[in-house]
Amino acid sequence: MSTAITLKEMVKKPDLLASGHRLCAGCAEPIIARLVLKASRGAIIATTATGCLEVATTIFPYSAWRIPWIHTAFENAAATASGIEAAWRAMRRKGRGPLARYETLDIVAFAGDGGTYDIGLQALSGALERGHDFTYVLLDNEAYMNTGIQRSGGTPYCAWTTTSPAGTVIPGKREWKKPIDEIVIAHEIPYTATVSPAYPLDLMQKARAAFETEGPAFIHAISPCCRGWRFPPNKTIEVARLAVETCFFPLYECRVEDGRPIYKLSPPSLAIAKRPERKKPVEDYLKIQGRFRHLFRPERRGDLIERIQRWVDRRWEMLLEKAGL
C-alpha cells in the first residue's frame, strides 16, 4: 500500500509548477499537474508531450517548471521517459553522475489525449510492455485543444469539435470514446487509476501510489477544457465533479497482482455503487457543456441522449462487475 498522504501535509509542499504560466483561466491541466507533482516523493524529472501544457508553461526564456523538465515531441512522451529511466538505471549501476544518487526517482510523463489515444499510443504501449519504472499522466481534455479543438480518439460520442462539427445531418462525433484504460490495463502494468481534479486528495493519493509503483503506472485524468467544452471558466471543477457523479468518468484504481487485474472503486464512485440512486443522469453533465448543445437545441435529441446514457450505464455496470460489486 502507498504511504498515506494528507491534505494538511500537501498544502505545505511548494508548487513545483509555478504560477504565471499562460494556460487559459479555468484550465484543469495545471491543477492536475500541480497535484500530481505535490505527490512526488522527492527527486523528480518530468517530460511533457507537445500540447497545451507544454507550450503554455515554457515560452522561452520563461519556464514554470521548478523541476528538471524536457519536451521532445508529440507522440513520444513514453519513449522519452523510457530513455530517462534507462539512463537513471545505467547510472545507478555504474555509480556515475548526479542521477546515481537517487535510489528512487519519480519519472513522470504528461501527455494529452491526442498524444495518448492517437499519435502516442504506440510509444505508450511499447514503454508499458517493456516495464519502465515511470508514471504516465494522461491529461484528457477530449480533443486536440492546442491546435484548436479537433476530435481525437478520446473525444466522446456526439461532442462537437472543429473536425466533428454538429451539422444539420451529423450531430457531432460519430464514434465512441476509445476505452484507453482497458487498453492500458491489458498490458498488465502494475497500477492504473482514473482521477478528477474535483477530488484533489484522491488524485494526490493515486499519484503517490503511481510513483511508489515499481514499473509503469498510468493515471488517467479527466481535464475539463472551458474553451473546447464550452463552459464558463469558473465551472471547471463542477464539470469535473459531474463527470464522476454521472459515472461518465468513474474513479477507480486497478492493480495487477499475480497477473490478475484487481479493480477498486474510489470513494466518490464507491458511494454511488453503494447507493445507486445517487447516480446522476448523464444529461446533467451534457447540458452544462456547449459542445453538446446541439443535443438540446434547437430541439431536444432524446434519442442521442438516451444512447449516451446507455453507454454510460453499460460501462458502469461492466466496471462494477470487474470490481466485484
Binding site: I70, A73, A79, S82, G83, A90, G126, A127, E129
Partner: peptide, 26 residues
C-alpha cells in the same frame, strides 16, 4: 557491458529514448 539496452518498438522511439537518456546525462 553495463549498458541499459532498451529494445524499443520503433525507430521513432529509439531516437526518442536516446534523447531522453542523453538529456539525463547518459
Amino acid at each position: 557491458v553495463d549498458t541499459e539496452f532498451v529494445a524499443v518498438e520503433s525507430e521513432h522511439s529509439a531516437m526518442s529514448c536516446c534523447i531522453g537518456a542523453a538529456a539525463a546525462g547518459a
